[in-house]
Design a protein around this nucleic acid. Sequence first.
RNA 1: GGUUCCGUAGCUCAGUUGGAUUAGAGCAACGCCCUUCUAAGGCGUGGGUCCAGGGUUCGAAUCCCUGCGGAAUCACCA
Length: 605
Amino acid sequence: MNIEHLLADAIHESLRALYGQDADDKQIQLQRTKREFEGHLTLVVFPLLRLSRKKPAETAQEIGTYLQEHTELVEKFNAVNGFLNLTVAPAKWVELLDSIHANPRYGFTAPAADAPLVMIEYSSPNTNKPLHLGHVRNNLLGWSLAQILEANGNRVVKTNIVNDRGIHICKSMLAWLKYGNGETPETSGKKGDHLIGDYYVAFDQHYRAQVKDLAAQFEAQGMDAEAAKARAEKEAPLMQEAHEMLVKWEQGDPQVRALWRRMNEWVYAGFDETYQALGVSFDKIYYESDTYLEGRKQVLEGLEKGLFYRKADGSVWADLTKEGLDEKLLLRADGTSVYMTQDIGTAKMRFQDFPIDKMIYVVGNEQNYHFQVLSILLDRLGFEWGKSLVHFSYGMVELPNGKMKSREGTVVDADDLIAEMVSQARRTADEAGKFDDMDEAEKDKVARIVGMGALKYFLLKVDARKNMLFNPEESIDFNGNTGPFIQYTYARIRSVLRKAADAGIQLPATLPADVEISTKEEEIIQHVAEFAAVVRQAGQDYSPSAVASYCYDLVKEYNQFYHDFSILREADEKKKLFRLVLSANVAKVVRLGMSLLGIEMPERM
RNA sequence: GGUUCCGUAGCUCAGUUGGAUUAGAGCAACGCCCUUCUAAGGCGUGGGUCCAGGGUUCGAAUCCCUGCGGAAUCACCA
């Protein structure tokens, strides 16, 4: 049962009765009534004037009168210009709350066996450095999208493509061989991904020193500064060695491969820890080292079919000028793969493994062009979902002085940030005396849930498309429009429910129909009921932020109203039960909503 | 230069399938509320040329055009 649908049906009926014709569903615009007017739902009658051929106020009056006289739904109405404000009968709100209460997963649609299969690719790290704040946004968005699509009845496969080969890994390997003393995560006590990241930085430092020296030599020989630098960057011995190592890797050199495997394992162990802390996981992981050859094969097949062409130097290209784009390189003259080639190969392997109906790539907006091209290429190569692939493009996380730059040491490390959030949550709770009656295990758990809740909500409440700002100085708040505020309200409701249970009060399956409820309470029911529509809409728009906004608004509205009430001391038994059921359903819907964001809810905090 | 995205309060952000004199939250500032289910809370005050200018119409922060400002991208990097 949904009041808006019932009302929309009744309005259709009234239009037929009054004007002898009906309107499209789209012309029935029902919205929540503005605060300053009386009523729950408002019908905008402007689109209906074509049918009535009367003035807005008159039309509104006629429809309102009809609804009041012919349905049980509408108790009263008022018409302001072209706006028909409808007040729904109180009994209907109680019925609505009952039906929501009966469904523990209200708003969620269970996936059918033949539901569309959606694959979501997210995370996709390089294996040469640890995860940073940008990756955190990616991971949380990817995970949340998967939850949202599942809640909308899709079958979802979460996947990760690990960029485990290429020149960047070789740089770390080389630096480890040249400048390291054979240290491992075990001997150094460092997390594997951080250890490898340190050597990547070491490579860069030594490389830059070499480039500087070389460029100075070239300049002394009379080259201009820019040309000298460009030549130095290419000819620096370290870079040459790295390239040699990459060639050896491609040739399958046993020593290089063994070191590569060993170091990647360190990195994966490190990533797994971070993923676990973030609460994300994958159903299927692909490695670029497995897919890049397949990509090459696909491109060569496409070349034979005449989809692509070869230049004189042997390189292979796609001509995209018909689509308004440029030419795109697919294979280098030496036959090796580029980024695009690998993505084609990965797509092929995925298609072999799963009968995918829809593919969603969660990748930063810096790669918008890449995915535009990928979509066209996959379509040309005959992938059914190629044309309709979704690039879920999200904005950068910026710092007060601009982008994160590893060279300037301004990268916000994911592990550091997580640790900081959890310990901050712990400190705040301790100071507020929240932890006084908890044992160590519970303190740890609550601090983790609240700290991560703050971080996740902070990153997910913002429209994914937009660049967002993170200020490390001010860090992340625990007050106001935050995860902890929502968690806190939830914990308070749970506390009330526990006390009610202790007092022997059981929540009834159905409420007495004659319970008296206030307008404000009707509004809260209405708000709770909107959850289903919010989940549906979020599924269509791929919008975690919409779910976050909803949870906050609902919790805030609930708080404002029930702040001064003492539900358990309410003398009227019917009212008490009603308020308990309403509170329980606010808590339920908020918990479901936050679960779509990957945010856990504490029973106490 | 081409393409795409963004521009809302001092700061961070909602609000855009066009809707109702007063465009909403939070933070920051100032004031009030803990003998009543948890003060990570509630109430109040101040704070806006919705980048600018045109256009479309009953009606524009929302749609269209132009300009200004910012970001990304246009690599034989991944």
